[in-house]
């Protein structure tokens, strides 16, 4: 059955209610993502038709290496990491009720990057060890930023300023580690400077996929609580939300998602910052729109990677460069409007 603006499904004591506009946003984004994924498999050297690219993905052939070994894992890593970043950003922005509060401005991403580089430089490790170190670094950065910004409570502008400062310090620490490490490890760690999906393997894709499969549903499940918290602590409590638990779980899951993304492709700038507001706008406002934000993040990161791979071929530009090209002007605009509104 339907009612104004919603789709409702009921069976026995179970019921679901979806906003039409939200469903439309999800479907539209999924379609765009499918088209982009296909383009990512087709374009490059050699450029293939859609049919040939899919055949190359499934079976042996001339293009099997280019598609199955180079492009597909890169695409999948980008999809998962982008979704992690988009979801992480939207969760933090909803929690803080401020579009500036994304993990890249709060220092979480930089902390995860430092953790990852430290592990690579010290042990040359890849894989799960890097992800664990990224998670540790991200959580440590979150605790540090929270502690430094604490003044009888947390205010968003103080969090963001402290986060940016801590982010710069962590980034400097990453640079120092890079200069002191041997050449091989340094080249392996280079992608942590701008964030890139270059030379991603199936192992990276699997790791990012598992991270998203575990943390993604947790994040989406927190959406209801976040939605109520946007009406203020008092209203949310009055509506039966355990606000302390939701806050803590949101920060933990958001840091985890950012760490998964950083372990997969380095600290790609601005995806987490931009995806949330776009997802919210597309789904018509009125809630955190976590699903659309995750799809938007995946779309942005994969589009940036495709652009970096194809536009100036054979030169390969890191995806982080393109996300910064979109993200930096957006951040300036956001700061200008926030200052005008008196929010900063």
């Amino acid at each position: 059955m339907t009612e104004a603006g919603h789709l409702v499904w009921r069976r026995g004591r179970w019921s679901l209610r979806l906003r039409r506009r939200g469903v439309a946003a999800l479907l539209g984004l999924a379609l765009a993502l499918g088209a982009l994924a296909l383009a990512s498999l087709c374009l490059g050297e050699p450029t293939l038709g859609p049919g040939a690219a899919l055949r190359a993905l499934l079976g042996p052939g001339d293009a099997a290496f280019a598609v199955g070994t180079l492009r597909a894992p890169r695409l999948l890593t980008g999809l998962c990491a982008g979704a992690c970043l988009g979801l992480s950003g939207a969760m933090m922005q909803s929690l803080a009720r401020n579009p500036l509060a994304s993990p890249d401005l709060l220092g979480f991403t930089q902390g995860a990057g430092l953790g990852a580089v430290a592990t690579i430089a010290r042990t040359g490790a890849q894989g799960v060890g890097v992800a664990a170190a990224a998670l540790g670094g991200g959580l440590a950065a979150a605790v540090l930023v929270g502690a430094l910004a604490w003044k009888g409570g947390l205010r968003v502008w103080r969090l963001v300023l402290v986060g940016i400062g801590v982010g710069f310090a962590l980034r400097a620490g990453t640079d120092v580690l890079m200069t002191r490490t041997d050449l091989f490890s340094a080249s392996a760690a280079t992608q942590w400077l701008t964030g890139s999906l270059n030379a991603r393997l199936w192992s990276h894709a699997a790791q990012a996929g598992v991270g998203l499969a575990v943390l993604g549903p947790l994040g989406l499940a927190l959406g209801r609580g976040l939605d109520r918290l946007e009406m203020g602590e008092d209203v949310a409590t009055a509506l039966g939300v355990r606000t302390g638990l939701v806050r803590l779980a949101t920060v933990a899951v958001a840091v985890g998602l950012a760490a998964v993304a950083v372990a997969a492709c380095g600290p790609v700038a601005f995806v987490a910052l931009v995806a949330g507001p776009i997802g919210r706008r597309l789904s018509g406002g009125g809630g955190p729109a976590l699903g659309p934000a995750a799809l938007t993040g995946a779309l942005l990161l994969c589009a940036a990677d495709l652009a970096g791979r194809v536009l100036l071929a054979p030169m390969q530009l890191p995806a982080g460069l393109f996300t910064a090209l979109i993200g930096a002007p957006y951040l300036l605009w956001l700061l200008a409007t926030q200052i005008r509104k008196g929010a900063l």
Partner: peptide, 17 residues
């Protein structure tokens, strides 16, 4: 139930929602 003095409406929310 409680209605506080200055509740915040999420941006863009409709009355029905």
């Amino acid at each position: 139930g409680l209605l506080p003095q200055t509740p915040l409406a999420p941006e863009g929310i409709t009355v029905a929602d």
